[in-house]
C-alpha cells in the first residue's frame, strides 16, 4: 500500500487514528476499511476494536495490557503495529464487497421532502427517484446512530443540502440525502437530511448478534417497492 501520506496520531490515551487522507474517495475509504478489517484477523494483546471512517481508521486499545505485553509505551507500540499493518496491506486486500438491495417506499408519508428536492432541481418526483435508484452506493462508514450508514455518491443532479431546520423526529428507516451523501436512519432520531423515501426492511435489529444490516464497504442499491 502506498503510505506516503499516512499520518498516525493519538485521540486520547486509549486510541490512535491512522489517517490516509482528508477526502471522501473510494481509494481512501478502501484503505481505511482494509486497515480496520486487518485487525479482525490479527488482533494484538490489548486490542479492543478498530473503527473505519471515510478516510481514516481508529484503533481502541487498553494501554495497560499493551504495556505489559510489549514492554514499553503503549502508544509507540500500537503505532508500530499500525505501521506494519499499513505496510502489509495491498489495496486488493479489501474483503469482497457485498451488494445489498434495499426495497424503498416513496409515498407522501415516507418521502416528505421529495417534492422539495424535485422542485429545487426542476425535475419531476419520478425523475428524482429514477436518478436516485439508478446507481449503486458505497457504504463509506457507519456513525451518528447505531446502524446509520453514510453512503455516496449521489448524482449531482439531485444533490441537496441539509434542511435548515432539522426535524425533531425522523422515523426509523427514513432514507435521507445531504449534499452528495445518502443515509438510512436506522432508528428514529432527530435529523436534518431531506427525506425522499423509507426502507421497507429493518436496517438495525437490536436483538440480533449482528444488529446492523449494512457494513462498511457494502454496496447498496435501492429498489422502488411501489
Amino acid at each position: 500500500m502506498i503510505n506516503d501520506e499516512v499520518r498516525i496520531y493519538p485521540i486520547g490515551d486509549t486510541a490512535l487514528t491512522v489517517e490516509f487522507g482528508n477526502a471522501i474517495s473510494l481509494d481512501l475509504n478502501q484503505k481505511a476499511i482494509a486497515f480496520a478489517d486487518y485487525f479482525l484477523d490479527h488482533p494484538f494483546p490489548g486490542f479492543i476494536e478498530a473503527i473505519p471512517a471515510y478516510a481514516s481508521a481508529t484503533i481502541i486499545y487498553d494501554p495497560v495490557v499493551v504495556r505489559r505485553a510489549m514492554q514499553g509505551n503503549a502508544f509507540s507500540s500500537v503505532t508500530s503495529i499500525a505501521k506494519d499493518a499499513v505496510e502489509s496491506l495491498a489495496i486488493d486486500s479489501e474483503r469482497p464487497t457485498r451488494l445489498i438491495e434495499i426495497p424503498m417506499l416513496s409515498n407522501d408519508e415516507c418521502a416528505p421532502d421529495l417534492p422539495y428536492v424535485a422542485e429545487l432541481h426542476d425535475l419531476s418526483e419520478k425523475d428524482v427517484l429514477r436518478i436516485f435508484t439508478e446507481r449503486e452506493y458505497r457504504v463509506y462508514m457507519l456513525g451518528f446512530l447505531p446502524g446509520f450508514s453514510y453512503m455516496g455518491d449521489i448524482d449531482d443532479r439531485i444533490a441537496t443540502p441539509r434542511r435548515e431546520t432539522p426535524r425533531t423526529e425522523v422515523p426509523s428507516g427514513s432514507i435521507g440525502i445531504a449534499g452528495r451523501q445518502t443515509g438510512i436512519y436506522s432508528i428514529s432520531s432527530p435529523g436534518g437530511w431531506n427525506l425522499i423515501g423509507r426502507a421497507a426492511c429493518e436496517t438495525f435489529t437490536p436483538k440480533a448478534d449482528a444488529p446492523s444490516l449494512l457494513r462498511p464497504g457494502d454496496r447498496v442499491r435501492f429498489v422502488l417497492a411501489e
Binding site: 486520547g12 471512517a53 478516510a55 481514516s56 481508529t58 481502541i60 462508514m141
Partner: peptide, 13 residues
Amino acid sequence: LAELVSSAVTFGT
C-alpha cells in the same frame, strides 16, 4: 483549517 471528513471520536475528545 480545511473542512474535516468525519472520523472516530472518543470519550473525552
